[in-house]
Design a protein around this nucleic acid. Structure first.
Lengths: 164, 164
DNA sequence: TAAGATTGAAGTGTCAATCTTT
DNA sequence: AAAGATTGACACTTCAATCTTA
């Protein structure tokens, strides 16, 4: 085959990451649900909200900061705003926007944050092998700064498209 | 507050991981869809299938190896088996099982694997900062071997449960 | 007309119930 | 009765279309 071979421990890293892609979100989500009754999405949004309690971030702001889509933000906020946790109202400066404010004490969030950090340690960091960490070193040296959207020039299509 | 403070770069690691939790699966999935017309789930299953071409793994085997739920395996295989890519039939040894076989040449998978590895490098490894990698070092030394299912003893419930 | 936000429809994943074989 | 697998109902996410304000 005309492809580059895998360098010694690269395959290990790769497989571990593939497993992590499915395992980690589920595990973290379960822990969060148990410890503070929030999904990963809700937690992420609330965390970013609590960091600018006076800033009144708009839905778009939140979407950008949390790396979530506009529609997801819309639905998550709508859901959370039914509780006395978040208030949502039309922006006073620009009538097109919707702004949100967190209505709970920072201490509650910090407590949840500690639980979550613990969960992250147990679920992610502690499961990485020494080989993986070694491989990460040289890899990260490059780019460090790069737009996340590189549309990937090619489209080989080895399998028929599964869409019907 | 009565919680442990965050050690210098821990917060950076944590935030990056939270972002990655949402960003990475989407990015990898998009790349895979473009390069070989498969979703992350389908790719993962096909990869594991192709590694034991003679073993005739059962649905349960696949579920364990891919860290996916039984029902998800069932649906993914059902979907893929409509193409000339995978064949599915009742197990001959144990009539309760369903076994699957991959019907395409290994070269096709290897080519896709190379694309995917490239995608993983660009999407994940290259985005990790030096601080993150440094933090990973001491963290992974512990446990290395641990059941993934630690039910987390506590349940503080800082927010009211959002379920209705 | 464009930007911000929301909503309907469709895809994907999960839990619990069900069916079959052992 | 228990194990393996599948299915139906439901929850979450996304895409595209829509609505409102600038």
């Amino acid at each position: 085959v005309d492809v580059e071979p895998l360098i010694d421990n690269e395959e290990v890293v790769w497989r571990s990451l593939m497993r992590l892609e499915f395992t980690l979100p589920r595990g973290l989500g379960d822990d969060l649900q148990r410890s503070c009754g929030l999904s990963s999405t809700e937690y992420s949004v609330l965390m970013h909200l609590s960091e600018s309690p006076d800033a009144q971030p708009s839905m778009s702001d939140l979407a950008n900061r949390t790396s979530l889509s506009p529609s997801r933000i819309s639905r998550v906020i709508a859901r959370v705003a039914r509780l006395p946790v978040v208030e949502r109202r039309p922006g006073s400066v620009d009538g097109r926007t919707t702004v949100a404010t967190v209505m709970i004490a920072g201490a509650d969030l910090e407590s949840s944050a500690a639980d979550h950090l613990r969960s992250v340690r147990e679920r992610a960091f502690d499961h990485l092998t020494a080989d993986e960490v070694r491989t990460l070193g040289p890899a990260q040296a490059r780019r460090e700064e790069a737009g996340d959207e590189q549309p990937s020039p090619k489209a080989p299509l080895n399998f028929a498209c599964l869409a019907e």
